[in-house]
Structure formats: structure tokens, C-alpha cells
């Protein structure tokens, strides 16, 4: 293609300007790279100083972020009473490795972890299913009252569980679903965020491709499963990961949709594990570590999806 003469002239002009700046400014010290990895020529010594400073800053910030985690590990592994009588130092006192065993045994951490997994899987699977179907209807089907249906979906953004909490607790109570998996999951089987995200993915499928599939003779279901979903794999994957994150971390709803300890998800159980007996405080801290492990695994194996999911939609953890 022919180059546009005005553009190349402008480029030339830019280049000239920059060269001029460079020539005028040689005495001004090179800017200190605080925010960007722009490599500018500087002496080896200065470079080394800058690099060392950067590592120092990074290490200091890491300490701020990691200190609470370190304290959690420390308190979980130290025998509580001995640790306290040692004056709560920054190092472990009489390490008790069986604290995790005891948390599973004495504090029935196993049951609440299991319940959390069940609740999370039910919610994630249901959310993917309902979001994909609803997104398909909004993206590819024409039907009466489509606008109204869409507004109703958007409207639920104004009605998070925190707002409707007390009414929903009454509803679940009336349905006799307190202390049950249905009661813990029903309000979360659908999410507007999921519908939006996946609809956006569907709308990104080029128009020509939809036309071609229509000519090829795809019916709606075949198009959904063979074309629309495979082509939106990335978005659906991100959504699954952030849905898992959200469902696993729930606190407010499972806290009030249960009134019996046996039906506490692990997040809710954290409030009480080990809090009755000062000698068992470390059980609670160990439980908090165990409760984070699934998400830690998620963070390690699905980093890309997490980043994409968190960036695409508002998700609270």
C-alpha cells in the first residue's frame, strides 16, 4: 500500500523533534526509572544502585503482604498456650504438626470443607449452564419483550444478596430449606455478570461466521454446542474460575441460611473453630489455611483465567 505522504512527513517531523530534544538536553541527568522498564544508557554503577534499590523496595513490599500470612502459619503451628507464655515471639514455639489432623477430627473441618465443595460445584455448574443459555437467547434469538427481559437481568445488579438478605432468609425458612444444600445455593444459581460476560463472547463471533453456519444448516442447539461455545472457550473458562472464587468465598448468605453447626460451610465455620477453648486457638488458624488451599491451587493453575476474569467483571472475594 502506498504510504500517505502527510503521515510520513509527520513522522519525520516527530523524529526530528525528538532528535532535537536529545541534543538540547545532554546535561540533564537521565530520568530515574521509577515506573517503566525503559532502558536508558547510564553507567554500570548507577544501574547497579538502581537495581538494588528496586529489589529492596520489592522485598519491603513483599514483607508487608506476607507478614500476615506468616503470622497465620506461625500461630497455626505453635501450641497456643506455650506460645503465649513465651511472650508471642516472631518464631514458632513447640511446633504441633498434627494441628491439621485435629482440625479435621475435633472441629469437623472435613465436613464443612466437603459442604463448601458441594455448594461451590452446584453453584458454578448451574451458573455456567443458566448463563450460557440466557446469553444465547440474548445474543442470537429474537423474541417479544427481549428488552424487558434484559432490563430485568441488569436490574439484579442492584439486588445483591446483601440487600435482599433478610427477605431471602425468610423465604428459605418458609420453604423449609434452612440447613440444606438447596437453601445454600438457590439464590446463586444465576448471575447477571455471567450472562453479560458470555453474551459478550457470543456477540464477538463474526457475523459472516453466523451466516455461514446458517447456510451450512446448523440448528440452534448444534450451533450453540459446536460453534458458539467452543469459540467462547476463553471467556467461559474465565467465568468458571471467577464463579468458583465467588462461590467458595461466600460468607453472608451461608451464615444466615443455616442455624446449625453441621450445615456451616468452611468460611462460616472459621468464625467458631477453636474459639471456645484458648488452648485450641491454633485449630482455627489451621482451618483458615486449609480453607484457602483450593483457591491457592486455582491461583497457581489458572492464573491467566483469574486475571482475565477479575479484569472483565466486578468480583468480590
Amino acid at each position: 500500500m502506498a504510504t500517505d505522504p502527510t503521515v510520513s512527513a509527520a513522522n519525520e517531523q516527530n523524529r526530528l523533534n525528538q532528535t532535537a530534544e536529545k541534543i538540547v538536553d545532554p546535561l540533564v541527568p537521565a530520568p530515574y526509572d521509577n515506573d517503566k522498564a525503559v532502558q536508558s544508557p547510564r553507567s554500570g554503577l548507577r544501574n547497579a544502585v538502581a537495581t538494588t534499590t528496586t529489589y529492596l523496595v520489592l522485598t519491603a513490599l513483599s514483607v508487608i503482604v506476607l507478614f500476615p500470612i506468616y503470622m497465620l502459619l506461625l500461630r497455626a503451628l505453635s501450641s497456643p498456650l506455650k506460645y503465649i507464655s513465651a511472650g508471642q515471639p516472631l518464631y514458632p514455639v513447640s511446633i504441633e504438626w498434627d494441628v491439621f489432623n485435629r482440625a479435621f477430627g475435633q472441629a469437623s473441618l472435613g465436613r464443612s470443607m466437603g459442604l463448601s465443595f458441594v455448594v461451590t460445584f452446584v453453584i458454578v455448574i448451574a451458573q455456567v449452564l443458566t448463563s450460557v443459555l440466557a446469553a444465547y437467547a440474548f445474543a442470537f434469538l429474537e423474541f417479544p419483550l427481549k428488552k424487558l427481559a434484559f432490563v430485568l437481568v441488569i436490574g439484579t445488579l442492584l439486588l445483591p444478596i446483601e440487600v435482599t438478605l433478610i427477605a431471602n432468609v425468610e423465604i428459605i425458612r418458609k420453604l423449609h430449606l434452612l440447613n440444606s444444600v438447596p437453601g445454600l445455593t438457590f439464590p446463586f444459581l444465576v448471575t447477571a455478570i455471567g450472562i453479560f460476560l458470555i453474551r459478550q463472547g457470543f456477540l464477538g463471533i463474526p457475523r459472516d461466521l453466523r451466516d455461514a453456519s446458517e447456510l451450512d444448516g446448523y440448528g440452534h442447539l448444534r450451533f450453540l454446542f459446536k460453534v458458539a461455545m467452543p469459540m467462547s472457550k476463553a471467556i467461559i473458562g474465565s467465568f468458571i474460575v471467577i464463579a468458583f472464587l465467588g462461590a467458595w468465598n461466600q460468607y453472608v448468605w451461608p451464615r444466615f441460611a443455616t442455624d446449625r453447626g453441621a450445615w456451616q460451610t468452611v468460611q462460616v465455620a472459621l468464625r467458631t473453630i477453636g474459639s471456645e477453648n484458648p488452648g485450641e486457638l491454633n485449630l482455627g488458624f489451621a482451618a483458615a489455611i486449609v480453607a484457602s488451599l483450593p483457591l491457592l491451587a486455582l491461583l497457581i493453575f489458572f492464573q491467566r483465567q483469574i486475571v482475565r476474569g477479575l479484569t472483565a467483571g466486578a468480583v468480590k472475594g
Binding site: P206, D208, L209, D211, A212, S213, L215, D216, G217, Y218, G219, R222, K226, V227, P230, M231, K233
Partner: peptide, 24 residues
């Protein structure tokens, strides 16, 4: 089509046979 409208997630073979498979 001008953009060819090929299914990016399918092999060339699956793309070519698509009209024979999809159309009952």
C-alpha cells in the same frame, strides 16, 4: 464470504465437511 467465515476451532477437514454434517 469475503472473510471466508471459517470455523477457527475446527480443522480444515471439519470445516469442509461442515455443511454435510450440520444439514440434516
Amino acid at each position: 464470504f469475503q472473510s471466508y467465515a471459517l470455523y477457527p476451532h475446527m480443522s480444515v477437514e471439519n470445516n469442509i465437511e461442515s455443511p454435510l454434517v450440520a444439514n440434516k
